[in-house]
Write a protein that binds this DNA or RNA. Structure first.
Lengths: 337, 337
DNA sequence: CTGAAAGCGCTTACAG
DNA sequence: CTGAAAGCGCTTACAG
């Protein structure tokens, strides 16, 4: 295994100082007013010797690692892995690399990941924040660029990419009502995160605006720790032994996937006996026997936007916070007819 | 924003040299025979000042970054994102962080990612290698620990975690035959990767051993670049206007998800008219109207194994190559009855 | 137009 | 038992 080629090797090879080589390699000949001939020679030598600069050394000097820390709830959730894929591509185009971590919606794990990534000197964070992490985010953003995705905290001014969750939920539920549904349940999380709260509010407002009195028994809630069991219990309650509602609105894809299993088990007819609308997407939605109507967020807009905001702020820490609000679309299919 | 705390700050605070502080922080007091009292003081000061060592500086000195580079075909494929999740957790337990990249099955992108990650001085690679990357892998493994997952190259001795694809495919197809199927097609990739080749061979061998003559028209192939279209074309050909086979074996989950859509479009009855078995997993398999029988690989065994092999080799570059062979299971469901 | 030198924040062999 | 100093591989202000 041959030794790595260093700046010094090129300098020796050409017969100049490492300083000169550094300037040329980084295209700063102008500032240093390096001779054209020499510059050419240096470039040639760099290629010939296959010089690869040592990122670590560069980072130590520059204080930049060209690394973005990505924290999501769970990288194996298709919603997040699809966003991760976009972020990866966009980031690399700009010379960044992504390290990732899953918080499992736990504030404690979130803090752990933040600490690890801070130690690694990431240049910026892209975070789908977990519940009760306001303080973490507030502190973090005073030190380093932070972009929130999917969720956000109204009390903190940050760069963020999100959708209007209230509107999206409102439209989804209004759509159910327009199609004649009157008793509409919502399967949500028992959680203190703004995007879920807004989805709940949108749901309630749609009922209200359409003259339907909200029945508290319709709002089903699960915890993150026990999704499967909680969904089963809540849904069995409201759907069995007899259907107490005629439509069901799922607040996220994970809830929907768990819920559809119960619906299959109970042998409920969708959409005849129960209409369904969900949020986000999943392969499961396409293959459920009655393909699901769902609120689609453009994952590529989210990913692209997040990387753009992050890198913009890396390059200009003083600029004002930007919220990119992505337009969701309601994809109409058989489950809600 | 207050300045980061340095070793020097602790040294000044306690009134010793940075060397001593470094020894204590890294629990090497023994070697340096630091006084117990001093060590205590230093530790206290480190906590009081909330000292966080600078990883970059450490890395530059030690040549280690405690970073693993993960290269898969596509991080948004649930098979890979689930493995990524396991790798993330296992790696962090051991003090490593993971940077990831998607090769899209392209040798060129693969090389690009390898170069980027090498520059970042990752300590090891975990790779699901793309087609035609033997030489990349061969070169790479002479420089740095490499663990292959999912796929491997028989011509290169490497650490790897895999299943016996031949056996798995053989059993899957034998299962179809045992259930009375006689004309069994396989939807695979037109690709020169060992795991796909072995799955094809297992398929053929199962036919042969059971006295069924293999019909070349049964082996359907798609390219990675055009999965959807290729699958549609190949499957329409063999399933329409009349069914020319009575069973279909999918070589991967991506092929199956694409294929099931066609089957739905054509309105084919599964399993009555066509039995199905697939590889890997997907939420779609559960929600297809006739839940899919599939070959399940333990993703956690794969992820865990990969991290173990990688870190073992980081700590002992000379040890012999290890193949972890994970036992797949055939999960029987309605689609293949 | 070019080079010597300091410095980024650590670790560790060496000297005392 | 402890410290001064070199060095990891770069960048860049400074001097010439």
């Amino acid at each position: 295994m041959n030794r790595k080629v260093l700046l010094k090797d090129i300098a020796d090879y050409v017969g100049v100082s490492t300083a000169l080589v550094s300037y040329v390699i980084n295209n700063k000949e102008k500032e240093a007013r390096v001779g054209v001939e020499i510059a050419k020679k240096i470039r040639k030598a760099a290629i010939k010797l296959n010089y690869q600069p040592n990122f670590i050394a560069k980072s130590l000097k520059s204080g930049r690692t060209n690394t973005i820390g990505l924290i999501v709830a769970d990288i194996s959730n298709p919603f997040f892995s699809n966003i991760a894929r976009i972020i990866e591509d966009e980031a690399r185009k700009l010379g960044y690399v992504v390290i990732f971590g899953s918080s499992d919606e736990s504030a404690e794990k979130s803090q752990g990941l933040i600490d690890v990534f801070l130690n690694r000197q990431v240049d910026a964070f892209i975070i789908a924040p977990a519940e009760h992490t306001e303080n973490q985010i507030k502190k973090l953003k005073s030190r380093i660029p932070v972009v929130l995705i999917d969720r956000y905290f109204p009390s903190i001014e940050t760069d963020c990419v999100r959708i209007d969750n209230f509107q999206a939920a409102y439209h989804a539920v209004a759509h159910l009502i327009k199609n004649g549904r009157k008793k509409i349940a919502m399967m949500a999380y028992d959680i203190d995160l703004q995007h879920i709260i807004e989805r709940k509010n949108g749901y309630k407002e749609a009922l209200k605006k359409n003259g339907i009195k909200f029945n508290p028994a319709w709002l089903l809630e699960a915890t993150f720790e026990n999704i499967e069991k909680d969904v089963e219990k809540a849904m069995t309650n409201i759907l069995s032994p007899r259907l107490k509602v005629d439509a069901l609105f799922f607040a996220t894809n994970t809830l929907a996937v768990a819920g559809l299993k119960i619906i299959n088990q109970l042998g409920i007819k969708v959409p005849d006996d129960l209409a369904i609308v969900s949020f986000d997407e999943s392969d499961a939605f396409d293959f459920f026997y009655s393909p699901l109507t769902y609120v689609s967020q453009s994952l590529s807009e989210i990913g692209r936007g997040a990387v753009k905001l992050a890198t913009d702020r890396i390059n200009n820490g003083e600029k004002k916070c930007t919220s990119i609000v992505v337009q969701p679309r309601l994809i109409l299919r058989k489950s809600s007819v």
